[in-house]
């Protein structure tokens, strides 16, 4: 009984850390325009819209976070093997991983912008200086929390995978959950703020991203402020629920029916989310209604 209570505590802590990680991850990637919205930041100068948005095309979010978290975990493992206590080791490992992330962010921005010189897009050094540090700060939060989850899973819950492999697995999962949830909110709702609300961006409008802010010219910190309102927390909730429910069903129900308990609970959770999803979909169809006359181009 005591071990189950301990397990539930670790599970709750891991879920909470994962929520923070997801929120920080999405805010970080939106400040850097990483992931799919990046294509529009890249496209804008070619359409004649010179901007001051940070364009940090390191890789898609899942592989990039796969590296940051695996690297943080690997370095933390190395420091622990050198007899440094785990908390300090995780902090040091995450800090070094963030250094790598920051360097990659600068080279990505310089590379993409320099390759756009034909369209007159200048490199803004102040963008580089102010945005990189902010993304590094967010990335540190995301990496530190995720590496901590991995350490808890490995050391406290006894998962067989070593720390670096867990870092790889959960890093990619973090990037996948964060990019899936957060990207549309930044890509559609923020970059194309001037387009009609409640409709997709017409393909003809591609590249015409919003470049001016409430005062002055928009930079990516304004975007971080925006996505911290919904995209970030939703990504955090998404990743937090994934980690929490995955651990919870295993820790509590694994012993029931030789493993079948966790399976049944997992299937029930999937069905619950399916019902919620269907409810939201129908709710939207009923309340928003169709867009006037049915278009006929569907193929």
């Amino acid at each position: 009984m005591e071990s189950i209570v301990f397990g539930i505590g670790i599970t709750a802590l891991a879920g909470a850390l994962a929520t923070v990680a997801g929120a920080a991850e999405n805010t970080e990637s939106d400040i850097g325009s990483q992931g799919d919205p990046n294509s529009q930041v890249q496209l804008a100068p070619q359409m004649g819209y010179i901007h001051r948005i940070f364009n940090k095309a390191i890789a898609g979010e899942p592989p990039a976070y796969g590296l940051w978290v695996a690297l943080g975990a690997g370095l933390a493992w190395a420091f622990m093997a050198m007899q440094i206590n785990p908390i300090l080791a995780i902090v040091l490992g995450s800090a070094l991983a963030v250094f790598v992330q920051g360097v990659y962010a600068t080279t990505a921005y310089l590379g993409r912008i320099a390759s756009l010189s034909k369209f007159g897009q200048p490199v803004f050094i102040d963008v580089l200086k102010s945005m990189t540090t902010v993304t590094m700060a967010h990335a540190f939060v995301a990496i530190f929390t995720t590496v901590t989850i991995c350490h808890l899973i490995n050391a406290a819950l006894g998962h067989p995978f070593p720390l670096p492999l867990l870092g790889l697995v959960w890093g990619i999962a973090l990037g996948a959950a964060g990019s899936a949830t957060g990207n549309p909110f930044y890509g559609k709702e923020r970059q194309y703020q001037t387009q009609k609300f409640g409709a997709g961006v017409p393909i003809a409008a591609s590249g015409n991203i919003v470049r001016y802010a409430e005062a002055g010219e928009r930079n990516s910190l304004d975007n971080g402020w925006f996505s911290a309102k919904l995209g970030g927390p939703a990504s955090g909730l998404c990743f937090g629920l994934i980690v929490f429910l995955e651990l919870w069903r295993t820790v509590i129900f694994e012993k029931i029916g030789a493993g079948w308990g966790a399976i049944v609970v997992g299937i029930i959770i999937i069905l619950v989310f399916t019902v919620i999803d269907r409810y939201i979909e129908v709710w939207a169809r009923k309340n928003y209604g169709p867009y006037g006359e049915p278009a006929k181009e569907g193929s």
Partner: peptide
């Protein structure tokens, strides 16, 4: 969970 949140963001966020 991920797909549910995608629908959530599309419907309630956008």
């Amino acid at each position: 969970i991920t797909c549910m949140f995608v629908t959530f963001i599309y419907v309630f966020g956008m």
